[in-house]
Nucleic acid binder design. Sequence first.
DNA 1: ACGCTAATTCGAGACTTCTGGAAATTCCAT
DNA 2: ATGGAATTTCCAGAAGTCTCGAATTAGCGT
Lengths: 107, 107
Amino acid sequence: MKLEKAALQLEALGNPTRLQLYRTLVRAGDEGLPVGRIQDKLDIPASTLSHHLKRLVDTGLVSQERQATTLICRAHYPAMQSLIGYLADECCADGSCPPVARKAELT
Amino acid sequence: MKLEKAALQLEALGNPTRLQLYRTLVRAGDEGLPVGRIQDKLDIPASTLSHHLKRLVDTGLVSQERQATTLICRAHYPAMQSLIGYLADECCADGSCPPVARKAELT
DNA sequence: ACGCTAATTCGAGACTTCTGGAAATTCCAT
DNA sequence: ATGGAATTTCCAGAAGTCTCGAATTAGCGT
């Protein structure tokens, strides 16, 4: 994963509304959630929601699938996994970094 | 970790310049890097660098320590670990995503 | 084809970020 | 104190984000 892409995904998640949105999708699991359902749950105007959603889709964090008139949205787990992988590798968290991240130190 | 804070940290990392900056600090390890040194490495104007750095410090991802006239900067690993923890917990990344995500039901 | 529902795009205003030069600050050495 | 090096703050302009109502498109059922 290249830095540019990671930054885009991080930026996409770096907005409270979008992070909440993403979290909602994760919680919905494999079956996903139609856009309208998300709207009900989060109580966000349709156009605002659509913009945020587009952003998550564009960065690959969320996927969509048409089912008749409704659009099902799902968290795209592999994207999150490689993002976390990037953070862990490049930004240390797996113990292989210079400072050897202290996994022993739990609070 | 609450959503708001996670979003702030993600936003901080969601800028190519800052992500590169953070990565540089991680690579520098425990001894850290003086601001001026970073400036040389990344070739960024001092004031721009200072702004970005402040943002990382404000969100807790980077810590600073004075040493005479120079300011040593270090990646603050615990912050990254809890951020990754948040993503992994809330947003799934351990392979058991959908199921695991449903243990706590919110919103 | 018509009407209906679901969702996106358009448009626009308020606000924030990003950038970097110039001025100011901090802190040590002399 | 004075000088000098390291870093931050001030300022301002260009660019981008966020929001959301209104208009529009997409797709099904009849």
